[in-house]
Design a protein around this nucleic acid. Sequence first.
DNA 1: TGTTCGGGTGACGAGACTGTGACGGCAGGA
DNA 2: TCCTGCCGTCACAGTCTCGTCACCCGAACA
Lengths: 234, 234
Amino acid sequence: MSRILVVDDEKDIVELVSLHLQREGHEVVSVGNGLAVLPMAVKTAPDLIVLDIMLPGIDGVQVHRRLRADTRTRHIPVIMLTARAQTNDRIAGLESGADDYLTKPFSPRELMLRIGAVLRRSQKVVMLAEQRIGEFLLDRKNMSLSISGKLIELTITELKLITTLMANPDVIHTRSELLSAVWGYADDTHSRTLDTHIKRLRDKLGDHGRHIGTLRRQGYLFQSVIQELADADA
Amino acid sequence: MSRILVVDDEKDIVELVSLHLQREGHEVVSVGNGLAVLPMAVKTAPDLIVLDIMLPGIDGVQVHRRLRADTRTRHIPVIMLTARAQTNDRIAGLESGADDYLTKPFSPRELMLRIGAVLRRSQKVVMLAEQRIGEFLLDRKNMSLSISGKLIELTITELKLITTLMANPDVIHTRSELLSAVWGYADDTHSRTLDTHIKRLRDKLGDHGRHIGTLRRQGYLFQSVIQELADADA
DNA sequence: TGTTCGGGTGACGAGACTGTGACGGCAGGA
DNA sequence: TCCTGCCGTCACAGTCTCGTCACCCGAACA
């Protein structure tokens, strides 16, 4: 699932950790020498680095600093392994820089949990570059909307509005929800602003404007298929 | 997950296919008559059409042609079902137009695989919802930029501009490239427009405006780390 | 049938946004 | 050192965009 770089000079540790990681479906790369970490990190672009603080040649803290200084590796989360013998100040120093740390001896189970947590935290939220609903094509890359290949010129407000509606088609978006999403209004300002923009949007969409439905007292919605709207109970 | 329109006059086939599709979480709409395909496709806006070539009333090839001729349906991918008895020319003709085709009799499993492949191909280009470069955080969902958590209010033009630059940080974007990406200008209009917007952007970014670098005669670039720019050979 | 309420519609003015041209300054080459 | 070309900066005017208001209409309900 993820690629993880394990840095430790004790082969036993590396093997133990690798075993557990692989069991969880991760790909493991390992290095035993501090000086080799940066080149290896650049080469393999791991999703996470498990870094022992005690290393031959160069200190783990130094390695960490170098990783952070290099634009190619600075975003990679690091979990530090420290020995109990380390002074508290040392640990505090690490704590500030690393994404997490663990004192030796540690249970593999705990390491796995922490790795899972860090990965989840750093996981990137992906979205569709293009969202298609029927003939509507929302191109987030170019910030544009087209219908059946025809570009519809929208203002930024209209674009935000339809983007919000299309994000959850066939679902009712309340007025306050839309006002919050598009205008950032916290309070339920009651004015004709939203209505007006809905109208402008519908006008620009021409015949397809009917995809934007109104539910009296409830809100608006983007209908993937145009149909009569029957109010549910209020 | 997706809405699929199945066109076949043999009820057994429709039922079989529908069953498998529904099992995979797809919504199925079906039609047994060639003439009903276009209206139904327009009405339900399916994500994919499975089209049998042998149909009563009107030939599947004709139907396909009509689908392609109509702006409302031309973008919908089509998988053709052909009988082994069809001549080779016929199949060649199909092959060019349809997104995929399958000869009867076929295994439902194979159809499912091909449908999966076509759907995957026809949609889903993913992008990061948030892009972070140093202190800069580009939030594509809310179409906003913030620096160290502070929201920067940008106009739509400025937003497109910095989005383009940030899409490939530390890479030179030529003037014509930017004019094309942001303004859609095909020709290299030479005016002060781009410069002016670059300046406005830099101003709004305050001290961080220095991330936008100029390379004389070459273009602009977003620098992930601020540094002196040395012109490469022109 | 009449009343009430929420949404639709059209107009308008303030302000924002944009593209342009003029001008100045700086870098690189002669 | 001067010249040339490219970019930075500024002011400005035209256009666009937005929020609001007044008024209309139709649905829901009594």
